[in-house]
Structures are given as C-alpha cells and as structure tokens.
Design a protein around this nucleic acid. Structure first.
Lengths: 214, 214
DNA sequence: CGCCGTATTGAGCGCTCTCAAGCTAGGTGG
DNA sequence: CCACCTAGCTTGAGAGCGCTCAATACGGCG
C-alpha cells in the first residue's frame, strides 16, 4: 500500500517501492480518530471524507481548530508536544491513511527531494484559516465559504457545495453562534449571493462573495 | 559565522563546520525586513530584538499576523507561496541571522538528525497565537500577556516585561481597538492582577491572569 | 518650553450574543 | 400511511460588550 502523501488537489503517492507500512482506516460519521493526550505517533492523510478537530474549554464551549478534507494531512500540530491536542471526529464517512511518524522521518532521510514538498505543505497549514479573526460575521462567513469551495472538492472551485458540518460547527470554528451563521446565510441569500437548502450551498455570485470576504 | 538555528529558550547553533553562508543583519527600530511580494529566499533567525509581521487590508486596517522575538525563526509561512505575505518591521533594534532557504534545504539533506528538531519547531508555530479567537477582550489580553511573558525573554516566565509594541499593535493583533486594550489594562490593574507603567508591565497575580485566559 | 505621538478615559451606538419561540426534515412506531 | 418526536435550522426581541468618536493627560524630544 502506497504512502499517501496527499495534498489538496494533488494526490501524490510517493514511496510505493519503500517498505512503508501505512494503515488505512475507515471512520463512520461521528467516529473519533484521536483524542487529546493520546501519544502522537502518526500523521493522517485523508483519502475521502471530512473531519473536524476541536477542544472543549472549561466553560463547555467547543472550540473548533479546523476542518480537514480529502487530500489534506492532519497531525502536524501534535509533533512538538508529543501528543494530540484536539479531539478529531469524522463529519461524514471517511477514509484516512495512517502514517507512522518514525516512518515519515525515515522517508525524509531516504528521499531528501521530498523536503521541499513537505515543507511547502506544512507552510500552507501555517496560513490556513487566517480569516477567522476578520472583524464582521459576514466577512468570516464569506471567507469560510470561499475557503471551503476551494478545498472541499479538489482543485476546481465549486459553485455548489454540500456542507459536512452543522451551523453550530461553523459558528464554533468562526467564533460566532449558530444563530448568527444562520442569519448571515439568510442575508446572503436575500442579496442573491448564495442559495441555501439545508446542507447544500450554491454560490450564485462568487465575485460579490469574494468582495465581502475582503 | 554559525548558522543560528535558534529556538525559544534553546539557542542552538548548528553547522559551524559547514560552508553555511549566513548574513547577520542589523535592523533599527521601524526598519523593514521584508515586504509582501518580495521573493522568498531566506528564513530569519532572530538573535536579539522584536519584530511584527502585518498586512494592511483594503479598508486600511493593519492586521498583525504575529510578533517575533529573540530565539525564534521567521519566514516559514512564505515557503509555500514563494514570496512573503507580510511586511515585517523591527519594533526595537534587532539583529537577525539570514538563512538562505536553499542552504537550509542543503543542511537538512546533510544532517537528517535535524529533521525532528526542525519539524518540532515548525509544529510549534502551528500552535502559536491560538488565543486570538478567544471570546472576550479580557481573555485575549490575559492570554497574550502570558504568551509574551514566556517568549519575550527566553525560558523563565517573566513577571516583569517591557512591551516592544504599542497598544494599537496589541489591538491589531488581537482584533481589538487600542482603547479596549487600554481599558482592559486599567481594569486588570484595578483588580491587582498587573501593574502598568507605559511599556512596562508587572504581573502581580500570575494565577489569576492564567485563570482569566482560561 | 512647546510640540506631537501615544495612552487613557468617557459617552453613545451597533453588532453579535442570549434567550426564546416556531419551523422543517427525517426517523420511529403504531 | 400518518402521528409523533427529535435534532437542527430559522427568526425575533432584548441585552451587553466592544467600537466609534471625542476630549484629555502624559512623555519624549527637538
């Protein structure tokens, strides 16, 4: 089984010839991949599906660190602490490819030509979700929808997307309440920027949406 | 001159024996290190001083991505885009060690034992500044002060620190106005949690402060 | 000493949260 | 097949926190 060094829009599989033992795991909706304090041992390349990483704070609020989609790699954040920091659960049926970290390091040693690629991948994650600290709810949500439209389904920006997460999840991620998310969705629909039907979102006016996200 | 692979609280210098050509640059207060769209060529290890990385958006707001202090490395975010994304300026007189990226890659190839260390360093940056999306101004500022007290002066948490940045900078970083920052500082002082005198901050009650940050 | 940038403090407003009441869709059992 | 139930979503009314605008105080520096 190949080591799936997946990247958004670029599912490259490297190291087929190596003795890279990776385990493919099937997760059902709501199934947990890892928990805080679990010892960090592996990165996870997502082949199919969607996950959310979150932490519950003292006051019971669920803070979502991020969503992860097919083609993305999860777990870099845990490297420096030696254990995972979030609970990660599947939002839909999901397949992940478990990559033991010591084998990952071994691969880097054997194939230095991967260094650039890996560093670029991690670098991308450093820039992820910069929009969560935008001022207004509208800006955050517009940016969020654009981000999703780029990530949720490979390379081509989708004008129609199925949200795998609830309004509450979106709110918890963006630092808003589910009510505010719902209200902004309604307003965007009134302004003919999007059309919503439950989990389905159609982006009618991508230009306007981008402008709102600034 | 050694390649300063600096880390907070662990100024390790590796590769003295290599032909690692690094340039040490002196920056005065307000001097610019790099600008958006500048081609990414180097990482910067900070030997002394403090910098801020920011971007000005369409509406003229200055959004600060982060502050960087002695012992930290700057530039990872630029890897995947191939150019810098922020303007980086010195907040005080600062010395940085410029590390050309191709030589950095060369070092990784020659010394695979550094892989773990470097990845842990970058991993740490992935977790940086998680507190900016806390709910209340008080939480953000408390967490900010704790963060600074840990980073600004090496390893030992400082109870007395000199802020290199303005209230406006703090506000721009945390998504607040300078007025709000000022008001919260005043309130914290009234509650005997800190004592402020211009740029000087003494943490009188670290336990309470930590509790406020949640 | 006088200037100017920075910080502090106050008053009023607006956006988002809170609390609460319907509403819709999907699932279950009679 | 339909009544019922539940979870998630939508919509409304009121409250609170932080923003805006504005005035004042402070400090460094010429």
């Amino acid at each position: 089984m190949p080591f799936c060094m997946a990247e958004a829009g670029d599912h490259a599989c490297a190291g087929q010839s190596n003795a890279m033992v990776t385990v493919r795991r099937h997760l059902e909706r709501h199934e947990v991949l890892c928990m805080p304090k679990n010892k960090f041992q592996s990165l996870y390349a997502i082949e199919r599906g969607a996950l959310k990483a979150y932490q519950v704070d003292a006051s019971g609020r669920e803070h979502i660190h991020g969503f992860y989609f097919a083609g993305e790699v999860l777990g870099y954040k845990a490297i420096h602490m030696g254990h995972y920091l979030s609970t990660v659960v599947a939002l839909t049926d999901t397949i992940v490819c478990e990559v033991p970290y010591d084998q990952f390091l071994e691969l880097l040693k054997v194939k230095p030509e991967l260094h650039k690629h890996i560093l670029a991948l991690i670098s991308k994650q450093l820039n992820a979700g910069a929009y969560v600290d935008a001022v207004s709810a509208e800006q955050r949500i517009a940016a969020f929808l654009i981000d999703l439209s780029l990530r949720i389904s490979g390379a081509t920006p989708m004008v129609e997307l199925t949200l795998p997460m609830s309004r509450q999840d979106i709110g918890n991620y963006l630092g808003l309440t589910a009510e505010t998310v719902s209200r902004v969705f309604s307003r965007l629909q009134q302004e003919n920027v999007i059309v919503t039907d439950r989990k389905l979102i159609q982006i009618k006016n991508p230009v306007m949406l981008k402008q709102m996200a600034e």
